[in-house]
Design a protein around this nucleic acid. Sequence first.
DNA 1: TACGTGACTTTCG
DNA 2: TCGAAAGCCACGT
Length: 104
Amino acid sequence: MNEPIDTFRQRVFQIVDAIPRGRIATYGDVARLAGSPRAARQVGGILSRLPAGSRLPWHRVVNRLGGISLPGEDFIRQKTALEAEGVEFGPEGKIDLSRYRWVW
DNA sequence: TACGTGACTTTCG
DNA sequence: TCGAAAGCCACGT
């Protein structure tokens, strides 16, 4: 009955959900783990369409510079959530990837 | 049903 | 070293 739908989106959900607390991953990492190294843009698009209450740690996904691509309030929200997990931001609002990156 | 858009990354010139 | 374009998949109109 519950056939595991191996769509790209389902894999993204599983991967993001597997990111440990206090760690981060880049869009490219998630895309690559999902099976499409070039689909980083879609990862962002999928996360932007996340249903409210999905309980997915989307805030642990950042761009390859360790920065947040979100504008305005969502930027604050993501940054606050990460800081609450012990992730420190640099002077330019970027995360030290070599320190917090979940996968290499 | 088809086309356009989008939280990005990588490669080529 | 810098700039531009392609690739990827799902969703909205």
